[in-house]
Design a protein around this nucleic acid. Structure first.
Lengths: 204, 204
DNA sequence: GTTGTTTGCCAACACCTGTTGACGTTAGGC
DNA sequence: GCCTAACGTCAACAGGTGTTGGCAAACAAC
């Protein structure tokens, strides 16, 4: 199943462009990350970017492919799901230019937001579907999970709110684990009665 | 204490510019919301924007002043804090162009992110300080609270993840209330041992 | 009615953007 | 060796940007 690997001479250049693009998009967002700036950081001419990636939009699409690599929840006891997901995402996200780039660009470019929705539908939703048989409820759980994790990424890596930046990964995991556990397995209280029982969300 | 109110003829124009600016910034972000587009929506000439607001950056500063109007927690029992804050913010944020504009712009413009941090420090942190005497812990609580609430705003109003958009305000409040309660009053588990007890975070 | 100020529009500026095509230069096949 | 294709640079294009100054009309004061 080996695909063609021509090992062209230009591969190094293409990789340099991609790396520079990720850095610039992550640091500056879509508009301010100009092709000229990306090319300069990669040490080549702006026209090379066009030749190898066609357009700025296609360059972003190439730079913002993102795999969450979520763990298999069915292999561990339900009571540890929150902690597992929290630790996994925290480790995967610290200093990850691709995530920050995608997040920054998605707030202003429709096609990047669309990609964010695709990633969610393709990677987060299936994870929750494994452990929640009711489709409507699974959708809610997945959505709320995204709410909390993307909120963390936003405030810690993009807005850089001081108290959120100051927390260590371990402290973050301690705060987040019960919350993610709640979204994954907690029972939802009836909206009308609005009785909030934080409850011990330890099992399904 | 009445300040001078000349009631100039240009007040209507200035207000129209501000309203148009909020809409364009909220819909397009900083770079794509051009002064020409804002002026066109306000039905006036681009040069008027400069005359009345000096520069694009100052226009944004004028358009993005934002009051959270958080409730006084000391007036109600601690067990209802989560629900109170959840309902308050949900009601305050639904269809609020100023919030969306500030959030969208803050992801790409440093000075807007700085303003976000100022709002946080001036409005969220004091709220938590009222009910948490330990300053270090209060800072953590406020930070995690921001994490969840800004994550909701991001996924619901900006990225528009379908499952998050689909939730009704009441459903959202039902999911969020115990989480905010946890951040406001829950005891933090020791980071090292990483023992997650979601616990009944009903009292301080 | 004349003056001075406010309100608005128009045209232009200097600059930066993504994108393109022509032109050298290098590498590899034969 | 030659020849072809890939690689890389340079200069330019057409269009859009924030911003500025001048000029006409509307208003206010006297």
């Amino acid at each position: 199943m080996d695909l063609e690997v021509p090992a062209r001479r230009s591969d190094r250049t293409k990789a340099a462009i991609l790396a520079a693009a990720r850095e610039r998009f992550a640091a500056d967002g879509y508009a301010k990350a100009t092709i000229r700036a990306i090319a300069a950081q990669a040490g080549i001419d702006p026209s090379m970017v066009m030749r190898y990636y066609g357009s700025k939009e296609k360059l972003l699409a190439a730079a913002a492919s993102f795999e969450l690599d979520l763990p298999d929840l069915t292999a561990v006891p339900p009571s540890s799901w929150g902690r597992l997901v929290a630790h996994h995402l925290l480790e995967r996200w610290e200093r990850n230019d691709t995530l920050i780039a995608l997040l920054r660009v998605a707030t202003t470019q429709d096609f990047a937001a669309e990609r964010m929705r695709t990633i969610f539908a393709g990677q987060v939703a299936p994870l929750v579907a494994q452990i929640e048989s009711d489709p409507a409820l699974a959708s809610q759980r997945a959505g709320m999970l995204a709410t909390q994790m993307l909120g963390l990424a936003l405030t810690r890596y993009v807005l850089e709110l001081p108290p959120v930046v100051a927390l260590t990964p371990d402290e973050l995991a301690a705060w987040l684990s019960p919350v993610l556990q709640h979204y994954l397995t907690g029972k939802v209280s009836a909206p009308e009665t609005a009785s909030d029982s934080p409850a011990a969300d330890s099992k399904e």
